[in-house]
Simulated assay, not measured.
Amino acid sequence: MLPSWVLLLVFFFVPILLTFYFAFTNLSLTGAASASTQFVGFRNFASMFADPTFRVSVLKTLVFLIFSAIVGQQLLGLILAVLMNERNRTFRSVIGVLVLAGWVTPEIVVAFIFFAFFSDTGTLDSILQWFHVKPIAWLYTFPMVAVVIANIWHGTAFSMLVYQAALGDVPKEILESAMMDGAGRFQRLWRVTLPVIRGSIATNMVLITLQTLGLFTLIFSLTGGGPGNKTETLPIYMYQQAFADYQLGYGTAISLILLLIGIIASIVYIRTLKVEL
């Protein structure tokens, strides 16, 4: 076990401790702070909460999280899993491959795909012109909608796989008993299946929440956080502060806020679904 513990110590625990330490310093890539880093206490956090851009980024992050992960990936993944669970093997294989194709595609490629889809002369506007609809600058007019749809397309397969596995573990005897008692398809899903798989629901919500909170490449490549700050989520804001403005200590403090949001969301999921750890 010693080699494993050494690896965990060097590549996991030490970076975590350094992250907490740097968040309370004025660490910078340029200037006097780069040569002599000093402990500044909660100054980074005070500046952060006083910055209106930070508050906007938190709001954008929550909007992006709710619509692309909790509503989009979670709900669509469950619907696909339920529909595929009731179909033959050939249908499941074909649909599964199509959905998984989006998941295995790298984020940078997904960004270019949806840039071509939503651009002024892209696929979507070309289709709308068939119906005599004027072209719309989607990435300028509705940038958050664009990144939400792109993330749903990219990440739904994970939720689908989780729910496919969970649905396979639901005892058929319970479903058959509910059917004999007169329960319809929706009633069996709502009153039998979902309560049985609530552990998988909580696990999936935690995983996709943490993944979505840390999403950077897709948004940065598709919109760069713009136009303005319309899609500037916390990872984009953190990048701007840490690597564009060279304020690594301030950027690290932002990462702790991002971590705190993930922890709070996870606790809410577990408490709401009453899952035992």
Score class of each variant (00 low, 15 high):
38 Q>L: 04
96 G>V: 01
143 P>S: 04
215 L>F: 13
106 P>N: 06
50 A>F: 01
104 V>A: 05
2 L>K: 07
199 G>F: 14
215 L>Q: 15
102 G>Q: 04
257 I>R: 07
65 L>I: 01
226 G>C: 03
82 V>D: 08
67 F>K: 00
106 P>G: 02
33 A>S: 15
49 F>S: 13
242 A>I: 05
106 P>A: 05
232 E>C: 00
82 V>E: 11
253 A>S: 13
59 L>R: 14
75 L>Y: 07
6 V>M: 13
31 G>Y: 13
172 K>A: 15
32 A>M: 15
242 A>C: 04
37 T>F: 03
159 S>H: 01
242 A>E: 11
84 M>F: 00
153 W>I: 02
118 F>N: 13
136 I>W: 11
272 T>N: 07
96 G>L: 01
4 S>R: 02
51 D>M: 05
201 I>L: 09
64 F>T: 04
98 L>P: 08
87 R>Y: 00
231 T>P: 08
138 W>L: 08
185 R>G: 12
224 G>A: 06
186 F>M: 14
210 L>W: 00
31 G>W: 14
124 L>W: 07
46 A>Q: 12
135 P>F: 05
277 L>P: 06
185 R>T: 14
53 T>D: 13
251 G>P: 03
183 A>L: 10
234 L>I: 05
197 I>A: 04
235 P>H: 06
226 G>E: 09
180 M>S: 09
251 G>V: 04
153 W>K: 11
206 V>T: 01
210 L>T: 00
84 M>H: 02
84 M>C: 02
139 L>H: 14
77 G>C: 04
236 I>E: 08
44 N>I: 03
219 I>T: 09
110 V>T: 14
215 L>K: 15
212 T>F: 02
52 P>V: 04
173 E>Y: 06
188 R>Y: 10
61 T>L: 02
205 M>G: 08
270 I>W: 08
175 L>Y: 07
43 R>V: 05
194 L>G: 04
170 V>R: 06
45 F>D: 11
168 G>E: 02
56 V>C: 03
254 I>C: 08
31 G>C: 13
181 D>W: 07
259 L>E: 06
49 F>E: 06
51 D>Y: 06
256 L>S: 12
55 R>D: 08
16 I>V: 14
129 Q>V: 04
206 V>G: 01
24 F>V: 07
85 N>F: 04
61 T>S: 04
223 T>W: 09
145 V>D: 03
6 V>E: 07
177 S>N: 13
245 D>H: 11
35 A>F: 10
10 V>A: 11
19 T>F: 00
201 I>P: 01
42 F>N: 12
32 A>C: 10
249 G>K: 09
245 D>C: 00
210 L>R: 00
82 V>W: 15
11 F>N: 12
269 Y>R: 00
253 A>D: 07
131 F>W: 09
30 T>W: 09
